[in-house]
Design a protein around this nucleic acid. Structure first.
Length: 876
RNA sequence: GGGAGUAUAGCUCAGCUGGUUCAGAGCAUCUGCCUUACAAGCAGAGGGUCCUUGGUUCGAAUCCAUGUACUCCCACCA
């Protein structure tokens, strides 16, 4: 078969991906084999592939492909997340661009638009994953708002409500004034901003005195219902129990005292606005203060107070400051840096707001989930995340599960005409419950009003590993029993709590079992300057462009080369070049092998030795790769492979076995080489699926339906360490000879003679054929003494080597070289002697360590003797 | 403020149970090679106060403490 001179990824990748799909290699159904399951962290349905996805999914594909080749029934479940806030924001924006306001639409109309958008743009990202080579079972593609998924979510909500774990309550929530929804704490990003600290003057009632209070938010005076002082603040003792007048507003409010107030900050006086600050809210609860909410949902001032009505809060701040100044109620303004919460989705300033929300009690649910991680039943990789996880789980807060959006699972709570509510999986079920609750049999579904809110997106994703196998609705079905618990979860540490912890909780609650055995936490993909990759910085390359330019294999290699678990990775395009170069190396190695003419003839001794050695080395490396994978050191496994292929196989083995130009190779060696090459392809395949598949098909005539991706991974086997270390010694000798050639400017092909003084005659008797070939020698002769002719020499272990080079020997230079080595060894010996003459070392160090030192001593001494002799001979 | 982590070659990082795996790898740099698989290559070379200062130990890159710098998470002093 003709092999193209260059590897062309683009045609190859499409060809093989199509082949794999046609042969249905990705799909899985339960059978007698042991399963290996991964559920994809579902990307946002409207998302577009970025470098983080590349990393994440490459890791998953490597794990999945490897497991498949190791004989597991592998199932990688793909899917997308409805991402209520993000998607709804996109749809709202799109409608706005078309001149349609969301609030001009009914819920049904809006959802129709949203679904239309989803059908059109949803799942692009999954198509993109195919370009990467992802071997997902696409038939299982699931969307978190598919009917059966939504049913599972609703069922769980109803169940938790029945168990008394769901409650409604007024809580301070993070209000997004643009998206008009509450956000979870995790969706709020705190950012430092330059702002101002305003010093406001509150007049003491019945006195001419003013109390000055520092605040960053003067507009909230409209909602002030108390001033708070620290009881231990001696400056203000005389004010305890008095009242003050809120500036501009004129309302009289009490002065209260609480140790919460920091005496050092500002003036030591705090204005309390329970409706608009979390801490103030707590004070409000403690002292039973009035709560005045002064904002509309969109962040404008409402009409509760009758001032600044309809004005935006940001505008209002400046206007109020001006009005205060004019009324001489503004003492001063200082520059001040403080932290402001911003919405992760809309980037608007979060407003703490009191609102009626649905909550899930977390304390009891979290306990088993904490235990499974602390006991390593669920292993976090790297383990350092255990601490963070514990900290969070021990301080877990109730989960606000409601969102004021339309895109998502609508909360299955139904309000009754006369107040109160019932919960049911369907309107019919709710109606039945309502009839029972009210005793009113004439109620109809139309009388019930379903709660407007939808559930937090995470409230569906926390069921993901269960619901994709329909384990909520049909807890005893074959699939869930076979695939669950899944094996590995690969995700970003940022969502350890949002998602991972909650999946573990859901696993315990609904399967009495953990959802996965280990969680591989990836790092964040950053650019060379350590900046996070983001659209706004424009430093994030488009992965598809990279794939088009370098091929998917190269990009996969790049992702895996720089990614230790949990470490951020500095991504740079040069890494992809390195990946591409590696592919090129593999390609060309194969071209070399395939170019050989094969003949039935006697096998050369050098080839026998090379094959023996490489197979040992291969076994050793397979064992090491195995252990690296077992510890999820995937990048390390790849490095091992890279070196095995490039240095050991291409650099040494192929040179050892390569026939002289124009000469044929014996068929035995050829077969052995093909066998080795094929094993290497197997090992590389999970990382570089396309090029390996292509070459595997070039190796022999494969039948239709055969594929590298479904053939068996070479198993780890014992290796002979002596053979490996012997050959290492030979490689060192070869390198030394190459060095001498280089120093002397001798052409590679000029044959030299090598004389060896060594006690290990067996070693040299065995490996002489290899030395002859690799170092271009005319002969290797074991001698008892160094040859008389002037020779260049070197030492490897305790053997001496001489290359008589006649005229070209520069005696002075030789002496210099030998002296340098002698000096080094003398110093080395000195340090060893010192150690050995230290009684405390000999007494307390373990015996084997002492033995090793003694061996070093003997070794150095003999080398020194030999060098000294050589120098003195040269001197004469 | 609370918690966690990191600091090793120009860059990215290994270095696991303290001792020949002890100062390493890849990339980058430099030198020499258009040696018929591969210049996306081959053969070599240079390059480090293992962040500081102490301590433990016969022995420390490795363990402990302190300081410094950076990173992340949590909480938010108005």
């Amino acid at each position: 078969m003709e092999i193209p001179a260059k590897y062309d990824p683009s045609s190859c990748e499409d060809k093989w991906y199509k082949y794999w799909l046609e042969k249905d290699y990705f799909s899985s159904t339960p059978d007698g084999r042991e399963p290996y399951t991964i559920v994809i962290p579902p990307p946002n349905v409207t998302g577009v592939l970025h470098m983080g996805h590349m990393l994440n999914n490459t890791i998953q594909d490597v794990l999945v492909r490897r497991a498949r080749m190791k004989g597991y029934n592998t199932c990688w479940v793909p899917g997308t997340d409805h991402a209520s806030i993000a998607t709804e924001a996109k749809v709202v924006q799109k409608l706005k661009d078309e001149g349609i306001e969301k609030n001009s639409l009914t819920r049904e109309e809006f959802l129709a638009h949203a679904w239309e958008w989803k059908e059109k743009h949803g799942g692009i990202i999954l198509e993109q994953l195919k370009k990467l080579g992802a071997s997902c079972d696409w038939k299982r593609t699931t969307f978190t708002m598919d009917n059966h998924m939504s049913e599972s979510v609703i069922k769980v909500f109803v169940d938790l409500h029945k168990k008394g774990l769901i409650y409604r309550g007024v809580r301070m929530v993070n209000w997004d004034t643009v998206a008009l929804t509450a956000l979870s704490d995790e969706e709020v990003i705190h950012q430092e901003v330059q702002s101002k600290l305003y010093y406001l003057r509150y007049k003491i009632e019945g006195s001419q005195e003013y109390l000055v209070v520092a605040t960053t938010r003067p507009e909230t005076i409209l909602g002030d219902t108390a001033l708070c002082l620290n009881p231990n603040d001696s400056r203000y003792t005389h004010l305890h129990g008095k009242r003050v007048i809120v500036p501009l507003v004129g309302r009289s409010i009490p002065i209260i005292t609480d140790e919460y107030v920091d005496i050092e900050f500002g003036t030591g006086a705090l204005k309390v606005t329970p409706a608009h600050d979390v801490n103030d809210y707590m004070l409000g609860e403690k002292y039973n203060l009035e709560v005045i909410d002064i904002f509309n949902d969109n962040g404008t001032i409402n009409d509760k107070v009758g001032l600044y009505v309809g004005m935006d809060r940001a505008v209002c701040r400046d206007v109020i400051a001006k009005d205060l100044a004019e009324a001489s109620l503004l003492d001063k303004v200082e520059d001040y840096t403080n932290k402001v919460g911003l919405s992760e989705r809309t980037n608007s300033v979060i407003e703490p707001k009191l609102s009626m929300q649905w909550f899930l009690k977390m304390e009891e649910l979290a306990k088993p989930a904490l235990d499974s991680v602390m006991s390593d039943e669920v292993a976090l990789v790297p383990a350092k995340f255990k601490n963070t996880y514990r900290h969070w789980m021990e301080n877990v807060k109730d989960w606000c599960v409601s969102r004021q959006l339309w895109w998502g699972q609508q909360i299955p709570a139904y309000y009754l005409p006369e107040g109160g509510f019932v919960v049911g999986e369907t309107p019919e079920e709710a109606l039945a419950a309502a009839k029972e609750k009210t005793g009113n049999d004439s109620l109809t579904i139309q009388d019930l009003r379903q709660d407007e809110d939808v559930l937090d997106t995470w409230f569906s994703s926390w069921l993901w590993p269960i619901s994709v196998f329909d384990g909520i609705r049909n807890p005893e079905n074959e699939e869930i029993n076979y695939y669950y618990p899944t094996n590995d979860l690969v995700t970003a540490p940022e969502i350890l709590f949002f998602w991972v912890a909650r999946m573990i909780i859901a696993g315990h609650e609904y399967r009495k079992e953990i959802p996965f055995k280990s969680v591989y936490l990836t790092g964040i993909v950053r650019d060379k300057q350590r900046r996070k990759m983001s659209k706004s910085l424009g430093n994030s390359p488009n992965p598809l462009d990279l794939i088009a330019k370098y091929g998917a294999d190269s990009v996969r290699m790049a992702m895996m080369m720089c990614s230790g678990a949990g470490n951020d990775l500095m991504f740079d395009e040069s890494l992809i070049e390195q990946g591409r170069n590696f592919g090129n190396k593999i390609w060309n190695s194969f071209r070399l092998i395939k170019g050989w003419e094969c003949k039935d003839m006697e096998q050369l001794d050098s080839s026998k030795l090379a094959i023996e050695w490489f197979n040992e080395s291969l076994n050793k490396n397979i064992t090491e790769i195995e252990s690296a994978f077992a510890q999820y050191r995937i990048s390390e496994a790849l490095t091992l492979l890279y070196r095995l292929f490039w240095d050991e196989f291409s650099g040494w083995y192929l040179e050892m076995i390569k026939p002289a130009y124009g000469e044929p190779i014996d068929s035995k060696s050829y077969e052995a080489t093909i066998d080795i090459f094929e094993k290497l392809l197997h090992l590389i395949h999970p990382f570089m699926p396309f090029i390996t598949e292509e070459l595997w098909h070039f190796i022999g005539d494969r039948k239709d339906g055969e594929s590298l991706m479904i053939s068996a991974m070479p198993a780890p086997a014992e290796h002979n360490a002596v053979v490996i270390s012997d050959v290492e010694q030979m490689k060192e000798i070869v390198s030394s000879i190459r060095n001498i050639r280089k120093e002397k400017g001798l052409p590679t092909r000029e044959l030299l003679e090598l004389y060896v003084v060594s006690s290990d005659t067996a070693l040299f008797n065995k490996y002489t054929p290899l030395l002859l070939k690799m170092a271009s020698l005319a002969k290797v002769e074991l001698v008892n003494e160094k040859p008389a002719a002037p020779a260049s020499s070197f030492l490897v272990k305790t053997s001496e080597f001489y290359l008589p080079l006649g005229e070209s020997i520069d005696v002075e230079k030789e002496i210099e070289k030998l002296t340098e080595e002698l000096n080094y060894l003398t110093g080395f010996l000195k340090s060893v002697d010192k150690k050995l003459s230290n009684e405390r070392f000999v007494a307390s160090a373990p015996a084997d360590i002492v033995e090793r030192e003694k061996a070093k001593q003997v070794d150095a001494e003999s080398k020194i003797a030999s060098l000294t002799e050589q120098i003195s001979v040269l001197r004469n």
